[in-house]
C-alpha cells in the first residue's frame, strides 16, 4: 500500500478544515481546541496540530490530505507536515485583506521547505465582500504562472477542481523534469 500526501495550508480561519471536510471520504480527524485569544475569536475552534482527511484511490494507493494549523504559534508543525508532500494548496480568505500578507509569508515558507508545485485557492469567492481574483493576484504578488483559483471550501465541486488543478501542475512538473 502506497500513501501520498498533499498539504492544505493558509492563515488562521482561511477555510482549510472545511476544504478537507468537503472532499475527504472519512470524517476529518481534527485536533481542534477552543480559541483562547480574543484577537482570534472569529470562530469557536481552531486546528492546533493538523487536520487529516483521506481519499482511497485503489487497494494500493491512498491520498492523505493534511491541513496545517493556521495560528502562528503552531508553525513548528508546518515543516513536519510538509515532509514528503506531493504539492500544497494555499488557502486565502478573499474577504480578509488583513490576512494576505500572512498568506504570502506562509506560501514562501512552504516553498522553502520543499520546491513542490502548489496552487493558491481564493476561498469565500461566493461572499459579496470577496476581492476579485485579479486584485488578489496583485495583492499577493503572484507570478502569472501560479494558479490562483476561485474556491468555496464548503462546495465539493470547487474543492475537487482546486485539487485537480494542483495535480495537473504536479504532473506537468514531473513531465518537464
Amino acid at each position: 500500500m502506497q500513501a501520498v500526501k498533499m498539504v492544505v495550508t493558509g492563515p488562521f480561519n482561511s477555510g482549510k478544515t472545511q476544504f478537507i471536510q468537503a472532499i475527504s471520504e472519512i470524517d476529518v480527524v481534527s485536533t481542534e481546541r477552543k480559541i483562547s485569544s480574543d484577537a482570534e475569536k472569529v470562530k469557536d475552534n481552531t486546528t492546533v496540530a493538523m487536520d487529516f482527511g483521506r481519499i482511497t484511490v485503489d487497494d494500493e494507493l491512498i491520498l492523505y490530505l493534511f491541513g496545517t494549523p493556521g495560528q502562528k504559534r503552531f508553525d513548528f508543525m508546518w515543516e513536519i507536515l510538509s515532509e514528503g508532500m506531493l504539492g500544497f494548496v494555499v488557502m486565502v480568505d478573499s474577504t480578509r485583506p488583513e490576512t494576505f500578507r500572512e498568506a504570502k509569508s506562509i506560501l514562501e515558507t512552504f516553498r522553502a521547505y520543499a520546491p513542490t508545485p502548489y496552487v493558491v485557492a481564493a476561498n469565500k469567492q461566493d461572499h459579496p465582500e470577496a476581492w476579485e481574483l485579479d486584485d488578489l493576484r496583485i495583492a499577493l504578488r503572484l507570478d502569472p504562472a501560479i494558479k490562483l483559483l476561485p474556491c468555496v471550501a464548503t462546495d465539493r465541486e470547487k474543492v475537487k477542481s482546486v485539487l485537480l488543478e494542483l495535480l495537473y501542475s504536479i504532473l506537468a512538473e514531473m513531465e518537464k523534469s
Partner: peptide, 21 residues
C-alpha cells in the same frame, strides 16, 4: 527537506487525477 523524486510518481498522480474526477 529533500525534494521527492517526481519520475516515480507520474502514474500515482495520474491515478489520483482519475479518482478525484
Amino acid at each position: 527537506v529533500p525534494p521527492p523524486d517526481p519520475k516515480q510518481q507520474v502514474s500515482v498522480v495520474t491515478k489520483l487525477i482519475a479518482r478525484i474526477r
